[in-house]
Amino acid sequence: MYLEHVNLVVDDIEQALNFYRAAFPHWHVRSEGSGSWHGKARNWLHFGDDYHYIAFSDHGEGSNRELTGHSVGLAHFAYVVHSVDAVIARLNQAGYPVDKDGAEHPHRKNVYFIDPAGFEVEFVEYLSDIPAERNSD
């Protein structure tokens, strides 16, 4: 079992793509189109690889959830990557600063960024193949 996709409502698909293309340079636009969602026009796009993707729709209004607050909603989502340092370098080069570093841990490295739509995205690199070590506090 695995998570196939996340569907994010944004106000600007191109801005979102700029961020995620820097994070995942091997991904591509799988499909795109337009239509309406509950009476409002929208464009949509699927960006990913053959097995995983992010679905974007551009009919967002208002701002995203305040990440430092306590409102119900998405706190963050995370991707396992081969090299956190490489992701940081690509995103920094594209103009996106690290929002916060993850906690020091002997078996993983992680970092958090805020994407252009205000979603917090974690990138984690595991330094062990042993689940008890990877998942320890």
Rank of each mutant, 00 (worst) to 15 (best):
D85T: 09
E133P: 06
S36K: 12
G48L: 00
Y112L: 14
R134C: 11
R65L: 08
V124K: 02
E66R: 06
A89Q: 11
S31K: 13
V87I: 12
L67H: 10
H52C: 06
D115E: 11
G95C: 08
D49R: 00
K109M: 05
F77N: 07
E133A: 11
K109D: 04
L67K: 04
W37I: 01
R108Y: 10
V121A: 02
A117V: 10
G69V: 08
A78E: 14
H38Q: 07
A117Q: 06
K109V: 08
G102K: 00
L91G: 03
D115P: 05
V124R: 04
L127S: 09
S31A: 12
K40R: 14
E125D: 13
P131E: 09
S63A: 15
P116V: 04
H76L: 08
S63R: 15
H38E: 09
I88Q: 04
H105S: 03
V29G: 06
P97M: 02
V87S: 05
Y112C: 03
R108I: 04
I54K: 02
H82F: 04
R90D: 14
D49Q: 03
V29F: 00
R90F: 14
V121G: 02
V121S: 00
N43C: 11
Y126D: 02
H28I: 02
V72Q: 10
Y96W: 10
D50E: 14
F119I: 01
P116L: 05
A89C: 04
F123W: 08
A41R: 15
W44F: 11
E32P: 01
I88N: 02
N92F: 10
A103Y: 14
S57H: 00
S34E: 15
V29A: 03
S36C: 13
H52W: 10
G118F: 05
G39K: 07
E122V: 09
N43G: 14
V29E: 00
R42G: 01
K109T: 12
S34V: 15
K100W: 12
D85L: 04
E66I: 05
G118N: 08
F119P: 00
D115I: 07
D99C: 13
H82S: 12
V84C: 11
A103M: 13
N110C: 15
S36W: 08
V80S: 10
V29Q: 03
